[in-house]
Amino acid sequence: PLPWPQSFLLKSLEQVRKIQTRNSELLEQLCATYKLCHPEELVLLGHSLGILQAPLSRCSIQALQPTKCLSQLHSGLFLYQGLLQALAGISPEVAPTLDMLQLDVANFATTIWQQMETLGVAPTVQPTQSTLPTFTSAFQRRAGGVLTVSHLQTFLETAHCALNHLV
């Protein structure tokens, strides 16, 4: 397949780093403010809330398929954008960081979508958001935030490796 344009790869890598920085900031805030510092302690709750990890198998270095990786990247970002939106109202202390993170993820999704359009592999219709978790308590929303952001962090590490591999 055609190599991806350098500026797209460099911009994407910069966006990944921008989001990762914001992610760690948010995780630190959630830990400091709500003492929710171990995502692994929230796995059970994650299942019951339906907060799953977005697949990125086509971006793993061992089985890298650039075009399919792109669409997995976009679908994952689109899912996380929705999950972050569902967390709105989490708390005044955390809301500003969460708003910025959600905008950065949405903008990165636009960058990916535009590249898919340029390569002619973009589906004709923009994806629609699948059903998002509903949070019945402040705790669930905060725990959902920790889970979503830590999943997003793992997701971005894989994306970073793939993009770096293609630069």
Binding site: L36, L42, L44, F139, R142, A143
Partner: peptide, 15 residues
């Protein structure tokens, strides 16, 4: 919390 594998699972949290 409840014990889970060799860690815990947080089930709920109150302020």
């Amino acid at each position: 919390l409840v014990p889970w594998a060799n860690s815990f699972q947080v089930l709920d949290q109150a302020e």
